[in-house]
């Protein structure tokens, strides 16, 4: 029986080896080659000495931070209020539904809404401000990215709030805490796991949204993802693209260790 079992699982382990481990190793390997295919440390030297690359990285992290912050500010109250609605499963479904609309179609909608004679500009003209350049600005990129990420933040926070025992809130009230104290001392700390999961789900993709920078940001915003896409598919400098990829992977592990901290602690306590 033992041997048969291993045979069943073979495809899965094959996948782990060839589509999870090998690609990461290959991207690290590729980062040591220049455009002519010679072994070099030059890509890393270029990356760490070039003001352009470093500024781009900082910029990308800063934008991802802003997107995550805006998403969190909008999503937390939404998840909290959703918890108290009557048909909450139905409402939750309606939050999820937009995530099933292709991301590019949503971006495309904003090309129309933000365009020179789109609805937003018509409204601005109507109230007397006059049309503004909205599309292809940093603000429009931030807006659309936040819009797209909102449901991914609401879901984990909503689940965390659902898991919260109401008795804790009642106890806090009985002991004389006001609403604000109950929120800051009980509700928020106890739903932190959901916030962390949401931050993880939003921050990492926000570093790499290259299609939005192209369609909405008008190439003004360059994220790590845009730089990778540019190097791989436009300038064909795979080595440099892989170097930025390695930076992005490292950034990903940093975010994961920061947001995964809570779980590890919990696990230790349970042992």
């Amino acid at each position: 029986m033992k041997r048969k079992q291993v045979l069943f699982e073979m495809p899965y382990f094959f996948w782990l080896a060839f589509f999870v481990i090998a690609p990461i190793l290959l991207i690290a390997y590729q980062s040591f080659f220049n455009i002519r295919g010679q072994f070099t440390l030059g890509n890393y030297a270029t990356y760490f000495t070039s003001a352009t690359y470093l500024r781009m990285t900082l910029n990308s992290v800063w934008y991802a931070f802003l997107i995550t912050l805006f998403t969190l500010l909008i999503s937390y109250p939404t998840a909290y209020f959703l918890h108290y609605t009557k048909h909450k499963q139905l409402w939750l479904l309606l939050i999820i539904l937009p995530t099933w609309i292709n991301l590019l179609l949503k971006a495309y909608a904003f090309i129309g809404i933000f365009s020179q004679d789109g609805s937003v500009n018509q409204f601005l003209t109507f109230i007397g401000i006059g049309p503004q350049q909205i599309l292809f600005t940093d603000a429009s990129f931030l807006f659309v990215a936040t819009y797209i990420q909102i449901p991914f933040m609401i879901l984990p926070i909503f689940n965390a709030i659902e898991d919260l025992q109401p008795s804790y809130i009642n106890a806090s009230r009985d002991l004389g805490a006001n609403n604000w104290q109950t929120f800051t001392r009980i509700i928020f700390p106890m739903t932190m796991s959901g916030v962390k999961a949401g931050v993880q789900a939003v921050f990492i993709p926000s570093l790499s949204l290259f299609m939005l920078t192209r369609l909405i940001g008008g190439n003004r915003v360059i994220t790590l993802g845009t730089a990778i896409e540019e190097h791989f598919l436009v300038t064909m400098n795979w080595g440099m693209g892989s170097t930025i990829g390695v930076v992005l992977i490292i950034a990903m592990f940093i975010i994961m260790s920061l947001t995964g901290e809570h779980k590890k602690k919990g696990r230790k306590h349970n042992d």
Binding site: I27, I204, I228, F232, G245, M252
Partner: peptide
């Protein structure tokens, strides 16, 4: 198992392209 769940799409795309 979860690596591909959290990896950014561009990393998956680029590394598969190299692969």
């Amino acid at each position: 198992n979860n690596i591909l769940m959290v990896s950014p799409d561009v990393i998956i795309g680029a590394s598969f392209l190299i692969f």
